[in-house]
Simulated scan of single mutants.
Amino acid sequence: MDVLIEFEQVIRPAVFLALLVLLAAAEFFFPLAKRKCTRAYQWGINLGMVLLDSLILKLIFPLLAVGVAHYAAEQGLGLFNLVALPVAVTLLLSLLMLDLLIYGQHVLMHNLPLLWRLHRVHHTELGLDVTSAVRFHPIEIVISMVIKMIFVLLMGIPVAAVIIFEILLNALALFNHSNIKLPKAVDAILRKLIVTPEVHWIHHSEKVRETNSNYGFNLIIWDKLFSTYIAKPQVDYPKMQQGLRQFGLQKPLSLYQLLILPFRGKDN
């Protein structure tokens, strides 16, 4: 754990880049569906967005969630810093609670009109690939970080738990947004516990009922527990249309269009 905390700034981007390359290679050989636009254009938009998001977060929140976890531990703040529990129990509970938080936040993003105006940027992707995992408007990223920081402070989430969760969240988001066709037996086993590409692709369908389902990013248990799980799409994956009809389903939006999208009219 000490090594993880000490080298967090190296480990997290290294894991991200390694998975990005590996999953991109897998997409090339085992696609779930035909690409809707060129890889160069899609990667340029999505990686440009994540670079902008990262810069804005660094400027606004020098500490981020890991820094807040350090502060809570030093000051003895939050539930887990006040209640003595075995380290393993605290770590497991922290990871489960953070995952539930992300699920709940995702549900709110779809059901509160002001938040949906931001989150719909993520849903304008016409065909998912691995980089779709980082396609979020900067304002949504800021709101998400504020929620996470408040939760970490109130619960006293350990530093190691925050780092592990961030690594898992990034890794599984890359995985379940990727354009990869898993063998049926493998998908059936994995989706008993985690969100697979076939599960999350349903969430990005242009059909409203399917968009409002499968909110989980890591564990699949929350969707099953709260009855938001759909096992199969109405249209099979190779023919599935993703995106939002009001923003067009033929031509991908530019980075500039994505940045101003929350400020456009409700239906245009």
Score class of each variant (00 low, 15 high):
residue 3 V to C: 06
residue 3 V to D: 11
residue 5 I to H: 00
residue 7 F to I: 05
residue 10 V to C: 02
residue 11 I to M: 04
residue 18 A to P: 01
residue 19 L to P: 00
residue 21 V to I: 14
residue 23 L to Q: 04
residue 29 F to V: 12
residue 30 F to N: 07
residue 40 A to G: 01
residue 43 W to Y: 07
residue 44 G to D: 14
residue 46 N to G: 08
residue 48 G to W: 08
residue 49 M to C: 07
residue 49 M to K: 06
residue 53 D to E: 08
residue 53 D to A: 07
residue 59 L to K: 13
residue 62 P to Y: 12
residue 68 V to N: 00
residue 71 Y to I: 15
residue 77 L to E: 09
residue 81 N to Y: 11
residue 83 V to Y: 03
residue 89 V to H: 12
residue 91 L to A: 07
residue 98 L to A: 07
residue 107 V to G: 01
residue 111 N to R: 11
residue 113 P to C: 11
residue 115 L to A: 03
residue 116 W to K: 05
residue 120 R to C: 02
residue 122 H to L: 01
residue 129 D to I: 13
residue 136 F to K: 00
residue 147 I to F: 13
residue 161 A to P: 00
residue 169 L to R: 11
residue 177 H to K: 13
residue 177 H to E: 06
residue 179 N to G: 03
residue 183 P to G: 06
residue 186 V to Y: 03
residue 188 A to Q: 13
residue 193 L to V: 11
residue 204 H to I: 09
residue 207 K to V: 14
residue 212 N to S: 12
residue 213 S to A: 12
residue 217 F to H: 07
residue 221 I to A: 09
residue 230 I to L: 15
residue 232 K to R: 08
residue 242 Q to M: 06
residue 242 Q to K: 08
residue 246 Q to C: 07
residue 251 K to N: 14
residue 254 S to Y: 04
residue 257 Q to A: 05
residue 261 L to Y: 04
residue 261 L to N: 04
residue 263 F to T: 05
residue 265 G to R: 10
